[in-house]
């Protein structure tokens, strides 16, 4: 991080000044709103803090307690399977649908809106009810299986073996946001390149792999990084479907859900919750750093 002294050209100076102007809102936000609370939470992770009385410094106690807390390992396992399975499925579907809804068909505006609908429902209370209508013991899935001659009265949402899978499906079903970003990204793929490729006799598959996908990599990278981060911190859907308990038998005890239980549940152990948060921060930060490092090999920028 040693600062190298170089003669500063007038152009560079001008650019520095412009940067200050452009970055000013962000600087204010980072210093005034984001970083203060972040560091405060780091401090709190070394305290016992029940929100009702001043925090007490306890050193590394919270971090030691985490190592002995079976729920930490359990919730990490749940979260990792969700991230590793859910994120790729979500991205592949989003990209495939974005390609299908990109251009060349009537009524695309309508289709796009319909496909985005589930993402609009987002975290509403109604989602929990709807999900039970679909995956409950007398829900749609079982009715459909009945039509196929398979008798089932399993409650897929409340069975420990399948509950997590229904949440992965819920995740896949709300691919709308990633789809929208892909659609916007596809706009940046110049049509001329496609035409040039077509003239060269390239088929649709070849065009996708050799023209579209490389130009889309900055956006794919964005969706991948954010998809992973968001899956790690996923909360709302798990909260709504299990009522915040991580039931059945802790099979949907997501890390962020456990953190919330600790922070705002009956214990309101904000110090411990802060320690949990900073562990997740380290894990996600490490993965993101690896992602950025690997991106040099496969992400193509226009410049």
């Amino acid at each position: 991080m040693a600062r190298t002294r170089q003669p500063v050209s007038p152009r560079q100076k001008r650019q520095e000044r412009a940067a200050i102007a452009f970055m000013l809102p962000w600087f204010i936000g980072a210093v005034g709103i984001t970083l203060g609370p972040m560091v405060a939470s780091l401090y709190l992770s070394f305290t016992e803090y029940n929100l009702l009385t001043a925090p007490q410094w306890v050193g590394f106690d919270n971090y030691v307690a985490m190592a002995n807390d079976p729920n930490v390992a359990k919730s990490l396992a749940v979260t990792f399977s969700y991230v590793l399975i859910g994120t790729p499925i979500n991205l592949v579907i989003a990209l495939a649908v974005a390609m299908a809804l990109n251009r060349g068909l009537r009524g695309l505006n309508f289709y796009r809106s319909v496909y985005y609908l589930p993402s609009l429902l987002g975290g509403s209370v109604a989602v929990g009810v709807l999900w039970r209508r679909i995956f409950g013991s007398d829900g749609l899935v079982n009715q459909f299986l009945g039509l196929l001659g398979i008798e089932s009265d399993t409650s897929w949402v409340a069975n420990p073996d399948s509950a997590l899978w229904t949440l992965i499906l819920l995740h896949a079903w709300t691919f709308g946001s990633a789809m929208v970003i892909f659609l916007a990204g596809l706009r940046q793929v110049p049509e001329e390149l496609h035409e040039a490729a077509s003239l060269d006799g390239a088929g649709a598959t070849r065009k996708f792999w050799h023209v579209t996908l490389p130009l889309l990599t900055p956006i794919l990278f964005f969706n991948l990084v954010l998809g992973i981060i968001n899956s790690f911190t996923t909360f709302t859907q798990a909260y709504i479907v299990s009522g915040g308990t991580g039931a059945p038998a802790k099979s949907t005890l997501f890390y962020a859900l456990y953190l919330y239980q600790q922070a705002f549940g009956t214990r309101h152990a904000m110090g411990y919750a802060s320690a949990l948060a900073w562990l997740l921060f380290l894990i996600v930060g490490l993965l993101t750093a690896v992602n950025f490092w690997a991106s040099r090999k496969w992400v193509h920028y226009a410049s």
Partner: peptide, 11 residues
Amino acid sequence: MMTLMLPGFVL
């Protein structure tokens, strides 16, 4: 990027 990674509940 770091501000994206810390679960919001503790903030």
